[in-house]
Design a protein around this nucleic acid. Structure first.
Lengths: 136, 136
DNA sequence: CAGAATCCCATACGATACTG
DNA sequence: CAGTATCGTATGGGATTCTG
């Protein structure tokens, strides 16, 4: 399942613009890097998951966003929806081949963040957040 | 500067939740995967860039978002701001070591998307599109 | 259990104008 | 050139309710 560990970064280094504004690549990047995209995709790495499992794994996600994110990613062909006509309903979501390719390049990123986040977090002023609010 | 070759995905595969809801990792993931985060970070891979260069490279970004994204990423320690007291002003942005580590795991993702985006298409109808991207 | 539908607010984001 | 300030809108996204 190794897709391409060979960087192919030449295309990027050589170009002036990274992703042209109205390109599919921009769209896909937005889908993947949407608030919940990465979490859902990575959550599926272990194998098929049910709706409720995904909700637990992507901690904090609302049902609305789960549904929306799943549809978008399904539309992009990254995951597959498998509904069984039983009662109570059982639906499994799983990565497609394309989805597995994507996740395989996503994992190093997620792993890196998981390892280094604790050093970053602080960053002194307002914790890096642009608008630090909260606090009831 | 080798950082990424060892996946360390065990931590992810073993865990039930991916990123706990109120964890630094979530915050960092949000910063990086913000609408413009990836674009800016990758744009800096080639070396220091000036404000106006970044604006061109991250095609479509507004000044407001450029400023905001730069501040957030600077706050996270991914990039450095270098202002020279000359007239007209000249400011260079460049990746820190930490930023370079991050981008090094980001590049495979970006490259993958650049390669496959056109097959994905999505969005059903019109779906036209596209003059290949990244072509010199 | 797995979702669709509705309501509604916060903020992300863009456009424009102004400044050192 | 490299920003900041202000404003207005669109959209993301949570809470709640309803259904097969």
């Amino acid at each position: 399942m190794k897709v391409s560990t060979e960087p192919d970064q030449s295309a990027l280094q050589g170009a002036d613009g990274i992703f042209p504004a109205n390109c599919p690549s921009r769209t896909v990047l937005d889908h993947v890097s949407s608030k919940w995209g990465v979490l859902i995709l990575v959550a599926l790495w272990n194998g098929p998951q049910r709706w409720s499992e995904l909700r637990r794994r992507a901690e904090g996600i609302s049902e609305k966003m789960l549904a929306q994110t799943l549809k978008t990613l399904e539309g992009d062909g990254f995951l597959r929806r498998d509904a069984q006509p039983v009662i109570p309903p059982r639906v499994d979501y799983s990565l497609t081949d394309r989805g597995r390719e994507l996740v395989s390049v996503l994992l190093p990123l997620v792993a890196w963040i998981a390892e280094h986040a604790s050093e970053i977090v602080d960053a002194g002023p307002s914790a890096g957040a642009v608008t630090a609010i909260v606090e009831p």
